[in-house]
Nucleic acid binder design. Sequence first.
DNA 1: TGTACCATGTAATGGGTTACATGATTCA
DNA 2: TGAATCATGTAACCCATTACATGGTACA
Lengths: 184, 184
Amino acid sequence: MCMGALKYAILGLLNRRSMTGYDMAKEFENALFEFWNAKHSQIYPELKQLTEKGLVEYKIEISGNVLEKKIYSITDAGKAELAQWAVTPHKIPAATKDEFRLQLFFSDSIDNEQRLNILSAKLAEHENKLAHLRQKSAIFDHIADMSDAAEAEFTDYLVWLGAVKREESCCDWLRKCIELCENK
Amino acid sequence: MCMGALKYAILGLLNRRSMTGYDMAKEFENALFEFWNAKHSQIYPELKQLTEKGLVEYKIEISGNVLEKKIYSITDAGKAELAQWAVTPHKIPAATKDEFRLQLFFSDSIDNEQRLNILSAKLAEHENKLAHLRQKSAIFDHIADMSDAAEAEFTDYLVWLGAVKREESCCDWLRKCIELCENK
DNA sequence: TGTACCATGTAATGGGTTACATGATTCA
DNA sequence: TGAATCATGTAACCCATTACATGGTACA
């Protein structure tokens, strides 16, 4: 389905700045969380392979007295592969498996009151998530005019906007569902 | 992450009507596609397990002269487990891995014109998908007033509405991205 | 000195897709 | 008689998560 896209996620990160595998794991948790994720147990083996293929390289840095850090950076070969991927069309991903929607679909077997309960609880969760997402907008506040934003800031903003709109739309839908159930 | 939710998808389907594993695969492809999917290679082993646990049972029916079909149905034990699951709260799923958003995020490395190209292509894809989703609304047209719709039709409608709204929101986002890029 | 975090790896397991394998039925 | 579809199963592989495993650093 994804055809080794982790590879490009890593190359993309290294194309912005050199970093350790540990740093990457944090980037996935923070900046990329809304559309990609990978744990360190996946990152380290992948970095090993990318090194063997010559797409990335590392130099060892000593932190403190003995702790060895591998600072990875992208090679020219890596940049070439990334550039190619960057303009390749990709399929719309298959819809996420969503246990809540599954539950709602089969809620023909429970009564309307219980259905309202699970809908209200889910709406509260998503409103909470939306609030957290909106808090992150502070990062983009200093960009008065997007037209002269730095490139990386601009693309960060575009995907952030997508995450917010997705969450808003989800909340709207849940409110509509609640309304329809209440008029039942 | 999903903790064996396939089990409940199957129980939910069988709670609506008895059917074969083959029928289930078709249901996943058609009715459930927007929030769940499973291929026959996953369904048959799961049905075997559920039979062993006594949550479903089957009777063999002969189609034509020799072809044996296993018509599965839900047992009382299965209904009890389904009823319990139906009111259990589930976590919001982790965001889908979306290679396009990954691409957009890292499009700081390509020029604005190419970014506009991939955005326009993706918008066309999603508009197409939205059109197909809306076509399916015909199924719900005969329900003049949702308040007296059959339960199963009503819940089908709720999740369908969610799929449409999700797709509309995605199109809106892409148009906004295109607008921002054009003013760049 | 203890706790949170930095840093790197491997192993076991689960979930899911694609491919392999087989054969019957229906209809043109 | 050939093609599309019905019908059931297994095997190999890929991706990803959780757990296992180790040890250093920074700071209160």
